[in-house]
Computed example of a mutant assay.
Amino acid sequence: MLFVGDRQAKGWRIAISVLAYGLPFLFIVAPLLSFLTYSFFWVEGGQMHYDLTWRNYSRFFTDAIFIPVLWQTCLLCLAVAVLAALLGYPVAFRLATLSGRRKYILLMLVLVPLLMSYIIKIYAIRSILGGNGFLNRFLVWANLIDQPLTLFVFNLNAVLLTLTVLLIPFAILPIFLSLERIPKNLIEASTDLGASNWQTFCRVILPLSLPGVVTAASFVFVLAIGDFLTPQMVGGPNGFTFGRIIYSQFGAAFNWPFGAALSVILALVMSVVIALGRRFERQT
């Protein structure tokens, strides 16, 4: 009976190991490998050619449009990451200073927007910022402007603001967790040594919470740079991003190999950002 029990336990361990390693390979590694393989195929005259070539990557580096759009998208997403971290930090700090059930109830309220439909949230922001939106109507009613503003309508400014609003919850949570991990006795010791609240924040709380800020910024950057739906809906012709180029290759252009090559390049950019973020976290 003991031998049978050992065999069953071993069988369960093998089954769990297969699931633990097999599922990530099936749903993460295999699709990435398929994209990498597709990026070496090519399309001409609407026909797919399966002989391997570097022409898709060569097109990216030689065409005058792709590198500037990628650079512009990186700068846009960097701005989104910085804004989300700056706006999310006070919220996370306030939540971390609360105690009892109220802290986690308010945290759940902050995260509730993540449960809503992404498209509905975009339409809601458009209804506020649009030419006939709430913001412009209010400004005209208050006689602050003579005609509706187009500053946040169908351009990169609209993409920047919309992505920031949508991704702030993803910045708040890592910062909140980082603030929660700060030992309370360090803050108490700083106060006992005569430091003011501002000095305690600048010399104790902020340095110890920087890893969470870096994680939040990296997380928001990766989510923003891979988003094509938001630029498609609020960017208009002046809000073109690298994600929209990739989307067009898989859609209207029907050039999957080139779209796969652009996706691989975008994945490399994300990997570099994540690696830089982790290195900065270790240094802090």
Rank of each mutant, 00 (worst) to 15 (best):
L2Q: 15
F3R: 15
F3K: 15
D6S: 14
R7K: 11
A9H: 12
G11R: 11
A15N: 06
I16F: 15
S17I: 07
S17Q: 11
V18W: 10
L19T: 04
A20C: 09
F25S: 09
L26K: 02
V29A: 15
A30E: 10
A30Y: 14
A30G: 03
L32W: 08
T37E: 14
Y38N: 08
Y38Q: 15
S39G: 11
F40T: 07
F40D: 07
W42S: 14
Q47V: 15
M48W: 11
T53F: 07
N56S: 14
N56L: 07
Y57G: 10
F61D: 09
D63Y: 10
F66D: 08
I67V: 12
Q72Y: 01
T73V: 05
C74V: 13
C74W: 01
L76N: 04
V82I: 13
L83F: 10
L83A: 11
A84M: 03
L86Y: 05
G88P: 03
P90C: 08
F93N: 13
R94D: 07
R94I: 08
L95R: 05
A96L: 08
A96D: 11
T97Y: 10
T97F: 08
G100S: 03
L106C: 13
L107V: 09
L107W: 04
V112K: 07
L114N: 11
L114K: 05
L115P: 01
Y118Q: 09
K121Y: 07
I125A: 06
S127F: 13
L129M: 09
L129S: 06
G130M: 02
N132D: 15
F134P: 01
L135T: 01
R137S: 15
A142M: 09
F152S: 04
F154E: 13
L156Q: 04
L156F: 00
L160D: 05
L166G: 01
L167N: 09
L167Q: 04
P169C: 04
F170D: 12
I172S: 03
I172N: 03
L173E: 06
L173D: 11
L179Q: 05
E180W: 05
P183I: 00
E188T: 12
A189K: 10
L193K: 06
L193D: 07
L193G: 02
A195C: 14
S196F: 02
V204E: 10
P207G: 09
L208G: 09
S209Y: 00
L210N: 00
P211L: 07
P211Y: 08
G212R: 00
G212H: 01
S218N: 06
F221G: 00
I225Q: 04
I225D: 08
D227C: 05
M233E: 11
N238P: 00
G239Y: 01
R244F: 06
R244Q: 15
I245A: 03
I246G: 02
Y247A: 13
S248V: 01
Q249H: 12
G251T: 12
A252M: 13
A253M: 10
N255T: 02
N255P: 08
W256C: 01
P257G: 08
P257V: 05
F258P: 06
G259P: 03
A260I: 05
A260C: 14
L262P: 05
S263E: 11
A267H: 01
L268H: 05
L268M: 13
L268V: 14
M270S: 15
M270Q: 15
S271Q: 11
V272C: 08
V272I: 14
I274K: 03
A275W: 11
R278K: 12
F280N: 08
R282T: 03
R282N: 12
